[in-house]
C-alpha cells in the first residue's frame, strides 16, 4: 500500500542542514495497522508527512497504492491526498469557525458531489465515530476526546484506503486515548483501512500489528 525506497529527507535552514531521514526502506501492506515509535526529533513525524504526501523527499521513491509518486506539486498530489489518504493530527486541527458537520465535510469539498451527498456521508462518518448527535456543535463546545473523534470522522469521511495518525492520543487522557485507539482498531479490523500511527505510548503500540522504530532518522530494529 505504501512503499518507501531509499527515501532521504533533508531540512535546510539558512545555516544548518539537518538529515531528518536517511535511507528509509519501508513497506506497509494493505490492511496493516503499524505504529512508529522513537524519541523526539527522530524523524517519525517527517516520515508520516512524507507518507501523507505533505512533504517531498530529497532522494528516493515513494509509492502509494502501487503508484509511484513522480511529482509532488500540489495539483498532482492533491487527488491522492483527497481520495486515498486521511490524516489525524495530535492537535486535532479542527476549524473553530465551522461546526462539526462542516468540519467533517471538508475533504468532500474537494471532490465532486452535491451538498446533499456530502451531508449524508458526513452524518455517516460521525455516527461511525459515535458522535451522530453533535452535528451542529462547535469544536470549542466539545471535549478533547470528542474533538479527536470528529477529526477521525473527517479523516474517514471520504473512505480513504490509508489513515495516517500523528500521536492521536498525545493530547488526551488515558480513557479518551483508549476510546480513540479502539476506534482505530475497529476501522482497521472491520473496514480494512491501512493505518500508520506515530506514538509515544508503548501500550498503544502494543495493540498494533507491527512496530517500526526510528532513531536519528534511521530505521532500527
Amino acid at each position: 500500500m505504501i512503499q518507501f525506497r531509499e527515501v532521504n529527507k533533508l531540512y535546510q535552514t539558512a545555516k544548518v542542514e539537518t538529515m531528518a531521514l536517511t535511507n528509509i526502506n519501508l513497506g506497509v501492506e494493505r490492511g496493516e495497522f503499524i505504529s512508529v515509535m522513537g524519541p523526539s526529533g527522530c524523524g517519525k513525524t517527517t516520515m508520516l508527512n512524507l507518507m501523507g504526501l505533505l512533504d517531498e523527499p530529497n532522494q528516493g521513491e515513494i509509492s502509494i497504492n502501487g503508484q509511484a509518486i513522480t511529482s509532488y506539486k500540489d495539483k498532482h498530489v492533491a487527488r491522492i491526498r483527497n481520495e486515498t489518504i486521511g490524516f489525524v493530527f495530535q492537535n486535532f486541527h479542527l476549524i473553530s469557525d465551522l461546526n462539526v458537520r462542516d468540519n467533517v465535510e471538508i475533504p468532500l469539498l474537494y471532490r465532486k458531489g452535491s451538498a446533499r451527498e456530502r451531508r449524508i456521508l458526513a452524518q455517516a462518518a460521525l455516527e461511525r465515530v459515535g458522535l451522530g448527535s453533535r452535528l451542529d456543535h462547535f469544536p470549542t463546545q466539545l471535549s478533547g476526546g470528542q474533538q479527536q473523534r470528529v477529526a477521525v470522522a473527517r479523516a474517514i469521511v471520504g473512505k480513504p484506503k490509508i489513515l495516517l495518525a500523528d500521536e492521536p492520543t498525545g493530547n488526551l487522557d488515558s480513557q479518551m486515548g483508549d476510546e480513540i485507539m479502539s476506534l482505530l482498531e475497529s476501522l482497521n479490523r472491520d473496514e480494512g483501512v491501512t493505518i500508520v500511527m506515530v506514538t509515544h505510548d508503548q501500550r498503544m503500540a502494543d495493540r498494533t500489528g507491527r512496530l517500526v522504530r526510528i532513531f536519528d532518522g534511521q530505521q532500527v530494529k
Binding site: L54, D74, R81, G86, I95
Partner: peptide
C-alpha cells in the same frame, strides 16, 4: 492551520 488541514485533505492551491 486551516490552510494546512485543507491541503492535507486534498485542496489544491488553485
Amino acid at each position: 492551520t486551516e490552510i494546512g488541514v485543507r491541503k492535507a485533505f486534498g485542496a489544491t492551491s488553485h
